[in-house]
Design a protein around this nucleic acid. Sequence first.
DNA 1: CCGCTTTCCTGGATGC
DNA 2: TGCATCCAGGAAAGCG
Length: 280
Amino acid sequence: MPELPEVETVRKGLTKLVVGLKINSVEVLYPKMINLPAPEFENQIAGKDIVQIDRRGKYLLFRLSDDLTLVSHLRMEGKYEVEAEGTPRPKHTNVVFHLNNGCELWYKDTRMFGKMALVKDDEVFALSGLNKIGPEPTESDLKFDYMKEILLKSHRKIKSFLLDQSKIAGLGNIYCDEVLWMSKINPEQATNYLSDAEIKLLRKNIIAEISAAIKGHGTTVHSYSNAFGEAGEFQNKLHAYGMKDEPCSRCGTKMVKIKVAQRGTTYCPKCQAVHGDLSE
DNA sequence: CCGCTTTCCTGGATGC
DNA sequence: TGCATCCAGGAAAGCG
């Protein structure tokens, strides 16, 4: 499932493949995923140039000519692929962009969870989700003082908190488990019982992990591959996610899987012991 | 406002 | 073997 590093990898790949091209026409094959009636969506995009591709959190922002932005969220299994015009399309192709270089840009999504919204540039950050998205998990954007303030103000379990895009942008289930393992913090730990040292460590690990994953072209779990079809290289470095019943690579204790905030959550019961209070 | 639960989807895994 | 059921999960809607 794509998280921030995977989305960034897709952004870079697509930038090389489609920026500078014109979209001659669009076919919406699954209208539920777009924010406009299909004919309106298709008409507005036809003839526009792909000027630039930006990213905010897990959202891709296709900057088009005439002050339009196509916002795209891959959710669980969304993928882009560029093929020659006329290439047989796979089963779950949801949107096809016909480009002026003889190629088609496909948006494919087996679980049909992905979303696209076509809006004017100045309306992007009014869209739900983007209107309250938290800082990027980077050294410059994610400040210690901010983290401390929002963590101590909340009474949630840390795992649930980290998944909340309005607090910090970009972390999904995989990286949440990873950064908590790295920081030796129990996923059910109440955020308001974290020490300064733990917050400092957590912040450092979030920034380091995301940055390393971007350098490694994103993680690969299930079906993810990037815009060039390359599998991510980061999968070999996972320590918690998907490691249920495996020995903790730090202390050898058998890793345990529980549910926190409706999400599968794997952690080491020894390294990541609870202290203070659990949230209720 | 806050936080928890449910819903959206399909395919692969599991159960009988 | 084949059919039914469960499970995975990001984000938003619904609810108290």
